[in-house]
């Protein structure tokens, strides 16, 4: 089992490379936490992600769950610090620096490259998430219907997650 520092370093690395938002990291976290180190089972990984969607605040709070499952409350603190510190520190730094460099052509060029790459990584993350959380054609259909309702603004995000959970629980009684 890992210690506090191993968890902190692992999640610091995640936090530092999570371009395109946390969701771009799902397949990378799956690779490291489940496949490479076997700190988490595939089921715990998926449940943690679902709970991260369920609680208020950043979706990536699922790392607090992963940290707790790996090394207790200290692991939760390590994962939280690791995931959120690099981006927060850079954001605070950037907000003072950006005003000065924003007009530079290289800054625009790097930003222009990072946005679509981040989008591609996010799409890969959603695919990984779908592969992990889909159990049969019913959940695929449920995800597509809920996604459409959210995209067309007929359903709020929290309502979509709650309705999904309620339908999933109801269907389990029929099986």
């Amino acid at each position: 089992m890992p210690d506090f520092w191993a968890v902190l370093l692992t999640f610091l690395r995640f936090g530092a490379i999570a371009f395109g938002g946390g969701i771009a990291l799902i397949s990378e976290m799956n690779r490291v936490l489940v496949l490479e180190n076997a700190w988490l089972s595939p089921r715990v990984f998926v449940d943690g992600f679902a709970l991260g969607q369920f609680v208020p605040g950043p979706n990536m709070l699922s790392v607090v769950f992963y940290g707790e499952r790996t090394f207790g409350v200290a692991g939760a603190l390590a994962a939280w610090l690791g995931m959120f510190t690099p981006g927060a520190a850079l954001s605070i730094l950037a907000s003072s620096l950006w005003a000065r460099i924003r007009a530079a052509p290289w800054a625009q060029a790097v930003r222009g490259a990072l946005l679509p790459i981040g989008f591609g990584l996010s799409t890969g993350g959603v695919l990984t998430l779908a592969q992990a959380s889909f159990h049969g054609i019913g959940s695929v259909a449920l995800a597509l219907v809920l996604g459409y309702l959210v995209y067309s603004r007929r359903l709020s995000l929290i309502a979509a997650v709650l309705v999904g959970g309620a339908i999933g629980a109801a269907l389990s009684f029929l099986r």
Binding site: L51, F54, L129, V140, L144, G147, Y148, V161, A166, I167
Partner: peptide
């Protein structure tokens, strides 16, 4: 179901 909602 929550997972399906999250994917959606």
């Amino acid at each position: 179901g929550i997972g399906a909602g999250a994917v959606g």
